[in-house]
Design a protein around this nucleic acid. Structure first.
Length: 256
DNA sequence: ATGGTTGCTTAGCAA
C-alpha cells in the first residue's frame, strides 16, 4: 500500500495539479491539508472519476483536511473529540485496509511567543492526548500530514537560520517528540537517512531555487507498520513549474 | 528589523 500526504495550499487553486498527480502516481491513500474551502468546494466528481473515495473535513478560507482512498474508508473521526470546541478543521481520521489513517494539519505557530505559537504547542499536546485515548501503539496507525515541524538538523538546509522560528524551534521539536513517544516512528527516515531532502520551501526569498527547504511533511507509523516500510520519496518535481503548492507530496510504501 | 510570494477575499490575514 502506498500512502501519500500533500499540503496543496488551496485545493481549488491546485485542482488541475492534484488530478494530474493522482492519475500519475495512483497512491492507495492520499492525505491532503490546507484545502481552504468547505466540503462543497472540493472536486468530488473529478476525484471519484479517478477511482478515489474522499472524506473531506473542510473549512472556509483556512485549514481543511481530506483523506482520499481507493477502497472505501470504514470509519471517520473529525477533530480530537476532546470537548474543546475548536473551529479549525485540522484533523481527520479513517480506517482503511486495516490501518488507522490520520490527515493532520498542525498549526504553523506564527511568531514565537504569539498566541498562535501557544495554540500550536497546545494543539500538539491535544494530539498526544488523543492518541493515548483513542489509539493503541500496537495497532497499525499512520499519522500523515503537514506537521509544521522539522524533527532534526538534517531536515533543515540552514538549521542555524531556522532554529529561532516556529518550524524548527527546540520547543516545537520537543512537542513532536512527545507525540512520537506514543509509539510513532518517522517512516521516511526508516528508509531514507540521507540529508538534503525537504518537503517545503517558502514562496518568498527564492526558497525553492536556493533549496532553502525544510522537511515538515511526514508519515509517522506505529510498530506493526515499521518493518513493512519498504520505500519513501518526496516528489520534488511537483514543487516545480507554474503555480505549485509550496509543499511537495511525500509518499511511503508499506508492504502488504 | 524587514522583506519577499501566494491564496482568499477584496485590505488584510495567514502561511
Amino acid at each position: 500500500m502506498r500512502i501519500a500526504t500533500w499540503n496543496v495550499n488551496s485545493v481549488r487553486a491546485r485542482e488541475a495539479r492534484l488530478l494530474a498527480w493522482l492519475a500519475a502516481k495512483q497512491p492507495d491513500v492520499l492525505c491532503l491539508q490546507e484545502l481552504k474551502c468547505l466540503d462543497d468546494g472540493f472536486p468530488h466528481e473529478a476525484v471519484r472519476a479517478l477511482g478515489y473515495h474522499a472524506l473531506v473535513y473542510g473549512q472556509k478560507t483556512y485549514n481543511g483536511v481530506a483523506i482520499l482512498s481507493r477502497v472505501p474508508p470504514e470509519a471517520e473521526e473529525r477533530g480530537f473529540g476532546d470537548g474543546d470546541a475548536d473551529p479549525q478543521a485540522r484533523f481527520l481520521g479513517a480506517r482503511i485496509g486495516g490501518i488507522r489513517v490520520f490527515s493532520a494539519y498542525f498549526p504553523n505557530g506564527g511568531e514565537l511567543g504569539s498566541e498562535k505559537w501557544a495554540y500550536k504547542l497546545a494543539w500538539m499536546a491535544r494530539l498526544r492526548a488523543f492518541l493515548g485515548r483513542a489509539c493503541r501503539p500496537d495497532e497499525p496507525v499512520a499519522l500523515c500530514g503537514d506537521f509544521n515541524v522539522a524533527p532534526e538538523e538534517r531536515d533543515v538546509r540552514n538549521p542555524d537560520a531556522w532554529k529561532d522560528t516556529v518550524l524548527f524551534h527546540p520547543d516545537a521539536r520537543a512537542a513532536l517528540q512527545q507525540v512520537a513517544e506514543f509509539g510513532l516512528v518517522d517512516a521516511f527516515r526508516r528508509v531514507r537517512p540521507e540529508d538534503g531532502l525537504y518537503s517545503w520551501w517558502d514562496y518568498r526569498m527564492l526558497g525553492f531555487p536556493k533549496n532553502d527547504g525544510l522537511r515538515i511533511d511526514h508519515v509517522y507509523v506505529t510498530a506493526p507498520l515499521v518493518p513493512r516500510v519498504t520505500a519513501a520519496e518526496i516528489d520534488r518535481n511537483e514543487r516545480k513549474g507554474k503555480q505549485p503548492s509550496d509543499h511537495a507530496p511525500v509518499i511511503v510504501e508499506i508492504a502488504d
